[in-house]
């Protein structure tokens, strides 16, 4: 079994605000990739907050993203952040977004929020920081 799990449930808040960090070079290994395993390693103690541009990761696209043609290669393994967020939710991670970030993404963004993502009030995250052992911008 790769890596032990912390026996007491840790409380880690992972905050992502930098988004879209490279499609061709990243592919499956986007910033969200590590989150389910961090959740496992922490004994089920991770919460993930998506802030600023990263809130878009939790908003369903209106059309599928086409594969990318580069010369003779068709690259169909680009990152799929919505699928990644769904995996994170399925792993049991609480996913949070702050209401103003959702509003900033356009009038229909809130309607397209992925099921299970929780919306909190502005600066509601910071109010919760003292309840976490670790607060990391990832």
């Amino acid at each position: 079994m790769p890596g032990e799990v912390i026996q007491e449930r840790a409380r880690w808040l992972l905050i992502m605000e930098k988004a879209y960090r490279g499609s061709v070079e990243t592919q499956f290994a986007d910033a969200l990739y590590v989150v389910p395993d961090l959740h496992r390693q922490s004994g089920g103690g991770c919460d993930l907050a998506l802030r600023g541009p990263a809130v878009g990761y939790a908003v369903r696209t209106v059309a599928p993203q086409p594969p990318l043609r580069l010369g003779g290669r068709t690259l169909d393994t680009l990152p799929d952040p919505r699928a990644s967020v769904t995996k994170v939710l399925d792993a049991g991670v609480t996913v949070l977004v702050e209401e103003p970030d959702l509003a900033a993404l356009g009038r229909t963004a809130a309607d397209r929020l992925l099921p299970g993502v929780q919306v909190i009030e502005p600066y509601g995250l910071a109010a919760r920081w003292p309840s976490y052992e670790q607060v990391w911008f990832l």
Binding site: P2, G3, V5, A10, D37, L38, Q41, S42, W136, F137
Partner: peptide, 22 residues
């Protein structure tokens, strides 16, 4: 180190900072 061992390193330290993003 394997990334699967990251929590062990966190546990071994009194404080842990994450500096910058990948």
């Amino acid at each position: 180190r394997s990334p699967f061992l990251f929590a062990e390193h966190v546990k071994a330290a009194d404080k842990a900072l994450v500096m910058g993003v990948c």
